[in-house]
Simulated assay, not measured.
Amino acid sequence: MNQVILATLSGLIVGGLFSWLGLPVPAPPTLAGVMGVVGIYLGFTIMNHWK
């Protein structure tokens, strides 16, 4: 759980920094894009457990 919190905090810092510098976001800019990445991760994890 500690890794999740640290990853979230670092993501918030990096996202804020990119916004402050006027750079494009280094991640999918929409919820649908983010959910696509989550789906890829979940599909990979499920298949590894299923094999």
Rank of each mutant, 00 (worst) to 15 (best):
M1H: 07
M1Q: 11
M1D: 12
N2P: 00
N2I: 15
N2F: 13
N2M: 13
Q3V: 10
Q3M: 12
V4H: 09
V4Q: 12
V4M: 14
I5Q: 13
I5H: 12
I5G: 06
I5W: 13
I5E: 15
L6I: 09
L6G: 02
L6E: 15
L6T: 14
L6V: 08
A7I: 08
A7L: 10
A7D: 11
A7N: 13
T8W: 01
L9T: 12
L9Y: 07
L9N: 14
L9G: 11
L9D: 10
L9S: 10
S10Y: 11
G11V: 02
G11L: 05
G11F: 01
L12A: 14
L12Y: 11
I13M: 10
I13G: 07
V14K: 05
V14L: 11
V14C: 02
V14G: 00
V14E: 00
G15N: 05
G16F: 04
G16V: 01
G16R: 03
G16S: 09
F18N: 01
F18K: 01
F18S: 03
F18A: 10
S19L: 12
S19W: 12
S19R: 14
L21V: 02
L21K: 09
L21S: 04
L21C: 06
L21P: 00
L21D: 00
G22F: 05
G22M: 03
L23A: 05
L23G: 01
L23E: 03
P24G: 03
V25G: 03
V25A: 13
P26F: 07
P26Q: 06
P26L: 03
P26K: 06
P26H: 07
A27Q: 14
A27P: 03
P28Q: 02
P29Q: 02
P29S: 08
P29E: 04
T30A: 03
T30W: 01
L31V: 14
L31K: 09
A32C: 01
A32R: 08
A32Y: 04
A32Q: 07
G33P: 05
G33M: 04
G33A: 02
V34F: 10
V34Q: 12
M35Y: 06
M35R: 08
M35E: 13
M35D: 06
G36F: 08
V37Y: 06
V38P: 01
V38I: 15
V38H: 07
V38E: 09
G39N: 09
G39L: 15
G39Y: 05
G39V: 05
I40W: 08
I40D: 05
I40R: 03
Y41R: 05
Y41E: 06
Y41V: 15
Y41F: 14
L42M: 15
L42Q: 10
L42I: 15
L42G: 04
G43Y: 02
G43L: 06
G43W: 02
F44R: 13
F44M: 12
F44I: 15
T45G: 00
T45M: 06
T45V: 14
T45D: 15
I46K: 01
I46N: 01
I46Y: 12
I46A: 14
I46F: 12
I46T: 09
M47N: 09
M47Q: 10
M47A: 15
M47F: 13
N48G: 00
N48W: 05
N48S: 03
N48F: 05
H49A: 13
H49Y: 10
H49P: 00
H49S: 06
H49Q: 11
H49C: 01
W50S: 06
W50D: 06
W50R: 13
W50T: 04
W50P: 00
K51N: 09
K51W: 10
K51E: 09
